[in-house]
Nucleic acid binder design. Sequence first.
DNA 1: AGGAGCTTGTGAACGCGAGAACAAAATCTC
DNA 2: GAGATTTTGTTCTCGCGTTCACAAGCTCCT
Lengths: 243, 243
Amino acid sequence: MIPEATVARLPVYLRALTALADRGIRTCSSEELATAAGVNSAKLRKDLSYLGSYGTRGVGYDVDYLRYQIAREIGVTQDWPVVIVGIGNLGHALANYSGFRSRGFRVVALLDADRSRHQEVVAGVAVRPFDDLEAIVHEHAVAIGVIATPAAAAQDVADRMVACGITSILNFAPAVLAVPDGVDVRKVDLSIELQILAYHEQRKAQVGQAAASVDGVDGLDGLDGAAGVGSGQLDGATIGVDK
Amino acid sequence: MIPEATVARLPVYLRALTALADRGIRTCSSEELATAAGVNSAKLRKDLSYLGSYGTRGVGYDVDYLRYQIAREIGVTQDWPVVIVGIGNLGHALANYSGFRSRGFRVVALLDADRSRHQEVVAGVAVRPFDDLEAIVHEHAVAIGVIATPAAAAQDVADRMVACGITSILNFAPAVLAVPDGVDVRKVDLSIELQILAYHEQRKAQVGQAAASVDGVDGLDGLDGAAGVGSGQLDGATIGVDK
DNA sequence: AGGAGCTTGTGAACGCGAGAACAAAATCTC
DNA sequence: GAGATTTTGTTCTCGCGTTCACAAGCTCCT
């Protein structure tokens, strides 16, 4: 129903609206909200139009009302129990991340296959054996699992999760997961993001060099247009030198 | 030159090739590599064709050769010095992440504004005051900065980075950054990914409920088609119930 | 009340990316 | 060496997402 690209931006709008609300702003135009969210206003309006007509022409959007509508649409008005598997450095960081709790995600269990970690308590939650997964998933009706294990273990963990009835997986391990239809997987790969930046960085260097050697003009001609809103952050990197 | 969507997949292919090489495989077809990378073979071939003709018809690709070509194109054959700002839980995890080093990213400095952290040594690198940023950037010719601070500090950090000459930023803070043209920003937002999963999870529940209440048929009809390769992982979540 | 001035919501055009299908080229078989 | 087989590289088509442009609708002012 709602395009995938729009779904991916709704949480950004939600965050921007929360920031506006925190500053005491009660009403905003699509232009203001778009700026706060880092997109252009046409896209914002089209995105919001998929949810319904929650704005008022000539006026704008009621911040709190729109915030509630988006939250409801995404599903963050309800409570989502989450299990995190793999309590290494990243697992620790995730368990402690306050942004989960504040958006309706409750970490009900931390699991790790390593026995030496089972005495640990992270962010107020005890680390338990991985084999407890099924019991926990059934007890708390967990639908979302987070994988923060090494790559080698990721597929096994995913298989076990699916077997227990988990239908959404957030994967931080640098591995491609095979899952049945009906199971959603999203992956976050830290090193891939850096590699994408490196690619553009390399191109900038090449272009800058070529331009400098050919006609002495700096290849990065946009630097004076400072403070332009970071455009297109969601879709990908902004590319300084185009074409 | 190379489409952005392709650039985003090249690191995935690189990882898949490395995995194949580790298993002693010298040659692979586009079909095999595509499976390993979680994409379909047509897309893979098209992506690779942007780099040049590095395969042999009727045979396939030489794993090592293709790996080198992709690495060169991305720019990970060279060494990229990186600074990480914000050594909280996430900063710790990033500093310790081995996937950076193994792909040519070298963490040359960890910076934090909090004085109480300046005695710390994380992953063999001392935590230094944020004000040392400029000296470090110039000394090591740093082009890539990682922001792992709270959201409130992110824009200030970004501004300082840009002022020092950093032209690529990986932002983990849940904030929209405004940067000049010519500076690339990529963002990773952990809670946004979870919210996207929550949205689809909510829809699954609704559809399942509707189907169950209408005709008693389970809404998730694809679960028996187990072990289908996780399709379209890069582009977004796979959606179990379509239309 | 009526017009001026905004701002939303949407129809239409456009461009990019995905996937299918096929031609080109290499190897293998006999 | 010729045909069969395999697999790449590329062309073409389709669909989605972005952006533009404008009509519809609300408020404010006179």
